[in-house]
Amino acid sequence: MTSPLLSAPQPGLGPAADPGLPNRWARGRSFRRRMLPFLFLLPWFVGVLTFQAYPILDSFYHSFTIYDVFQPAKWIGFRNYVNLAEHDYTRKALMNTLLYVVVSVPGGLVVGLLQALLLNVKVRGLQVFRTLALVPGTVPVAGAAAVFLFIWSPSLGLINTVLKMLGFPKGQAWLTDPVMVKWVFIFMAIQGGIGMLIFLAGLQNVPQELYDAAKIDGAKSIQTLFKVTLPMLTPYTLFNLLTSLIGAFQMFSVPMLMTGGGPAGGSMFYGQLIYENAFRYFRMGHAAALSWILFVISMIIVVLLFRTSASWVYYEGGN
């Protein structure tokens, strides 16, 4: 706070420097003043150029090469892409990931919305409920992986015990069944998580006047939900949709920790495939091609979302 940099008055702005108002304005828009935003943005610019733009171009180039870091890259044209399309494991990981995205993203969105609506009902003990609702999200990924390994375990697991109590005596081998295992991960991903918090924040921003007006007009609560709450939440819905989509396409920590992608690639998701190609087999070209395929798929979805968003997202004041 006492730094001279912070307290030094802007030249041309101090009243002592020039008393005349028009003059002050004229000098305020001096060259230095105009350059100031770019000075503020300098770290951002450098970051975008060095750690975003260059890596993007580099990865695009290397997706057309054989490259193992130790030897110079060798140009092979579209061979990486062709190979990937032909390989079973790519298709499997891609299908697993698409399935995960298609089921868990909308599922998580709906669950998050319902949870947020529920935690927005003004009942006694609301703060306690909100705090409790956040507890599951605070278990670190590695801890959660350990717990869920235990819960889904065929012999000791809680799930099979509960199923047995409900009258299904034959326990499922959840995590060792190549078909079942991906559904376990998809199922576990259907939760509100941070999306719930974002919806909850959005609910605080719905003006009370709208609810009052709806009440005066005699709207039922379900009508209020669909005509007031949900439309007002649409910017938050779009944000949640975008971020959870991008996250879901890249998800691989929990399966990698719990099953390592197995059995038989049953829980191999796209992210782990990229990671293993790059850092286990040092097929950097392969990995680059894989990530570009992911990039293109997710960008198509994002652009479609943005294109349609004008028709369903409400912006207050437009801006």
Binding site: V48, F51, Y54, P55, I274, A278, F279, F295, M299
Partner: peptide, 27 residues
């Protein structure tokens, strides 16, 4: 160009980390 740069920022936000992961590591 502030609007344009903000759009660029939003696009970078939506880009999968994997695209830049390998070149960054090599760097």
């Amino acid at each position: 160009g502030s609007e344009l740069l903000m759009m660029l920022n939003i696009s970078l936000m939506l880009m999968p980390d994997f695209v830049t992961m390998v070149p960054r590591f090599v760097m």
